[in-house]
Simulated scan of single mutants.
Amino acid sequence: MVPSGIHDDRKAQDVESKQYAIPTAERMRALGEQVARRMRGGEVILLSGPLGAGKTTFAQGFGAGLGIDEPIVSPTFTIARELNGTFADGRPARLIHVDAYRLGGTDYAPGQDSVDRLLDELESLGLDEELEDVDEHAVVLMEWGEQMAAALADERLDITLTRPVGTGHVRRTDRELTSDGMRYATLTAVGGRWDGFLGAFDFA
């Protein structure tokens, strides 16, 4: 594990972060699964990183951690999918899996800034209320979340995946094309809801 630290942001809220080295797709899935098993309902997870960083692989592990039987695939063409599963304590869980890559485009109306445009698009998709007040039986997992942070609620778990240039190789398994090679996953807890989450989280 890469050393973790505390980042102090006095302008907003205290932010706690941990970073993990993730060498394989299997480990990325395992990280997603362990995070999901800590969910209790009402959480917003923002998942960001470049293409090939492992976002979909993490999401697959996250779905497994919520006991979701359906395949977890990138929701790029539907923007949002809802999947039913189970929290670790046995309560029904609803995963709202969102791909925000195509939201917040550049063709704004006169005088409209990017945040206003983003909020308008979220409202048109019925996602604005989901993000402002997540149902106690639901968890929102939003890919490409870095584009959304300014427009979202103050309480969230940011997960940023990075992949050093020139690392990794592509191999085909029986089920899918995977790309192994070192990645880093930085988990950043923002807001009071997440107090103590990372302190108790130990990805082994």
Results as ranks from 00 to 15, higher is better:
118 L>I: 14
190 V>A: 05
20 Y>H: 12
130 E>Y: 11
129 E>H: 12
63 G>V: 01
90 G>A: 09
50 P>N: 07
28 M>S: 13
51 L>K: 06
53 A>C: 04
177 L>R: 00
68 I>C: 03
204 A>T: 08
185 A>K: 00
178 T>N: 09
4 S>W: 12
136 E>S: 15
3 P>K: 13
33 E>R: 13
14 D>G: 10
140 V>S: 04
107 D>S: 11
31 L>E: 01
131 L>V: 14
21 A>S: 08
12 A>N: 08
47 L>K: 09
176 E>C: 02
125 L>T: 12
29 R>I: 03
82 E>H: 10
150 A>Y: 06
73 V>G: 02
41 G>H: 09
160 T>F: 03
202 D>F: 00
94 R>H: 12
63 G>H: 08
17 S>K: 09
1 M>L: 05
127 L>I: 08
46 L>I: 11
26 E>K: 14
83 L>C: 07
92 P>N: 06
81 R>N: 15
145 G>M: 05
115 V>P: 10
37 R>G: 08
93 A>K: 08
106 T>W: 14
3 P>G: 06
64 A>E: 13
158 D>R: 01
90 G>R: 12
184 Y>H: 12
40 R>K: 12
186 T>I: 14
100 A>T: 12
196 G>V: 02
150 A>K: 10
5 G>F: 09
86 T>Q: 07
125 L>I: 14
34 Q>W: 00
41 G>L: 09
170 V>S: 05
81 R>L: 13
119 L>T: 13
36 A>M: 04
134 V>Y: 11
164 P>L: 03
27 R>G: 05
2 V>G: 03
183 R>G: 00
21 A>Y: 06
147 Q>T: 01
22 I>C: 03
76 T>K: 15
150 A>S: 14
73 V>Q: 06
136 E>D: 15
112 Q>A: 03
71 P>K: 06
137 H>L: 11
177 L>K: 00
51 L>R: 10
176 E>M: 02
185 A>V: 05
55 K>I: 08
149 A>F: 10
165 V>P: 06
88 A>I: 02
7 H>Y: 03
100 A>C: 07
133 D>S: 14
166 G>T: 01
130 E>A: 15
168 G>A: 04
6 I>C: 11
7 H>A: 06
169 H>F: 15
36 A>H: 06
30 A>V: 04
168 G>K: 07
196 G>N: 02
51 L>T: 15
71 P>Y: 10
136 E>H: 14
177 L>W: 00
34 Q>M: 04
50 P>Q: 05
150 A>E: 14
6 I>H: 12
35 V>L: 01
51 L>Q: 11
142 M>D: 04
22 I>L: 06
96 I>S: 09
43 E>K: 13
157 L>S: 01
114 S>E: 05
169 H>Q: 15
74 S>T: 11
23 P>E: 08
93 A>L: 08
153 A>D: 11
188 T>W: 04
110 P>Y: 13
132 E>C: 06
179 S>Y: 00
156 R>P: 02
36 A>L: 05
